[in-house]
Structure formats: structure tokens, C-alpha cells
């Protein structure tokens, strides 16, 4: 296999795995629900995106054609991540989930 492609695949895989892990660490470690919401919507989405791109490069260098499913998966994840985050934030505001003490401002009543 082309060494450049191999290098790019390895790099993207490691970056993707690292971002997914960091998103999960954020989910486990941050103090309240609204701060936890940030990890999955950004870090995890980008992590999976990087893994998907490495899959595209891998299969296209193997000569199995350029994957369209991969692009659909990425596009779908990037379109749905903000929507589900927004729905969850609304649900949390409705249930009056506790926020950490150093939060400035306050959520609206639902």
C-alpha cells in the first residue's frame, strides 16, 4: 500500500479514537448535565468523522471504490448531533436539572 495513504489512515484512526475517548471522559467527568452535553456533541462527532474518513481512504486505496455510505453516515451524524443536543437540553430545562454552582445566568422556564 502507498506509504502516504497508510500514514494518513493511521493518523486519522488515532485522532478519531482520541476524540471519541475525550468525549467520553468529558461525559464521565464534567460536573453537571449542561456541561456534559458539550462532550458528545462535539468531540465524539468529530472522532467518528475522522474514523469514517480513514475508512474511506483505506477502501479506496484497496480499489474497492469510494464509499458513499461513509459520507452518508458522516453527513447524518453532523446533521443530527445539534438537533438531539437541543432536544435533550430542552428536556433537561423542563425537568429543572441541577446546574453547578459557578454557572452564570439561569435556564428559562419551560
Amino acid at each position: 500500500m502507498n506509504p502516504y495513504a497508510e500514514f494518513a489512515i493511521c493518523l486519522l484512526l488515532i485522532i478519531g479514537g482520541a476524540f471519541t475517548l475525550i468525549g467520553a471522559i468529558g461525559l464521565a467527568r464534567l460536573p453537571d448535565f449542561f456541561t456534559r452535553l458539550h462532550g458528545p456533541t462535539k468531540a465524539t462527532t468529530v472522532g467518528v468523522g475522522a474514523i469514517v474518513i480513514s475508512s474511506v481512504i483505506y477502501f479506496s486505496t484497496l480499489g474497492q471504490g469510494i464509499g458513499i455510505e461513509e459520507f452518508l453516515i458522516t453527513a447524518f451524524l453532523f446533521m443530527t448531533a445539534p438537533v438531539s443536543a437541543n432536544f435533550l437540553a430542552k428536556a433537561a430545562m423542563h425537568l429543572k436539572v441541577n446546574t453547578t454552582e459557578n454557572t452564570r445566568g439561569h435556564p428559562w422556564d419551560q
Binding site: 468525549g23 467520553a24 461525559l27 465524539t44 438531539s84 428536556a91 433537561a92 436539572v97
Partner: peptide, 9 residues
């Protein structure tokens, strides 16, 4: 909501 967020991730 935390649990739903965990399932989502």
C-alpha cells in the same frame, strides 16, 4: 437526561 445522553453517545 444524563442517561439519555449516555445512550446517545
Amino acid at each position: 437526561p444524563d442517561r439519555v445522553l449516555a445512550l446517545d453517545t
